[in-house]
Design a protein around this nucleic acid. Structure first.
Lengths: 122, 122
DNA sequence: GATAGCAGTTTCCTTAAGGATAGCGCTATC
DNA sequence: GATAGCGCTATCCTTAAGGAAACTGCTATC
């Protein structure tokens, strides 16, 4: 049987390993925050205004919604579009780049489902 | 061009979607905590004792190491083995189940590396 | 007997994350 | 002119996460 240490992660070069750890940490970081996921999910249904998003996410306060939207915007997942009508209409929508998260969502989802099943069976 | 909302996540059934969100949340949760990742990485090099792990992770305090190890153990990623020698030798090692994280680490790492490059290029 | 290492635990403190509530400038509607 | 909705921001407070330092019971070594 091969060693566990050779299966969990293939790179055993130290700088490569550190680079990987940083990358994983960064990826986890951009999804950190209590409401990032729900917001992304709500925005999958199309562009929406601030209060629309707020109403769909039970329990979120405007302060936190604002903060999380800004962070999502900074990371390039969301754009804030201002329609120059009167009164102005502001819409948040997912960017093309947000789709790059698909792979990690799928991986996290599959693992999570499997883990839930495992936890229940113990 | 297909809609963004149809690409980020395939399920648009509400209960399926909620289930996925919960699974992703759970997966993110078990990796949450400042030191989980470094600890898992250190243990990839083989079973190690408390102070060995501590010495390899610069900045970690025994309190946090103890806490994180307990959580990793509860989630089934790590086992605490007590060798009944005198004095007792206690070793922490990765379980077989820890290798199930391989897929999400790979996904997070790849996305993270790509994201770092993107951030630098802006 | 004194010192040091192991495997932690305990206490106290700081920082960060998150929540409740109120309010602001704007416009539209009654 | 009063009320309500939009898109927030500001203030205050609570909870949670994390860190520093000391200490414990054990054994081994000098």
């Amino acid at each position: 049987m091969e060693k566990l240490s050779e299966r969990l992660s293939p790179e055993h070069n130290k700088t490569e390993c550190r680079r990987s750890v940083n990358a994983v940490r960064d990826a986890l970081y951009v999804l950190g925050g209590k409401w990032k996921l729900p917001i992304l999910v709500v925005l999958e249904y199309g562009p929406q205004r601030f209060t629309e998003v707020q109403r769909q996410i039970e329990g979120i306060t405007p302060k936190l919604l604002s903060k999380e939207l800004k962070e999502l915007e900074m990371n390039g997942f969301v754009t804030r579009r201002v329609q120059p009508t009167t009164p102005v209409l502001i819409e948040y929508e997912l960017t093309e780049y947000a789709t790059s998260l698909q792979g990690i969502f799928a991986a996290l989802r599959d693992w999570g489902i499997q883990h839930q099943a495992r936890v229940r069976s113990l």
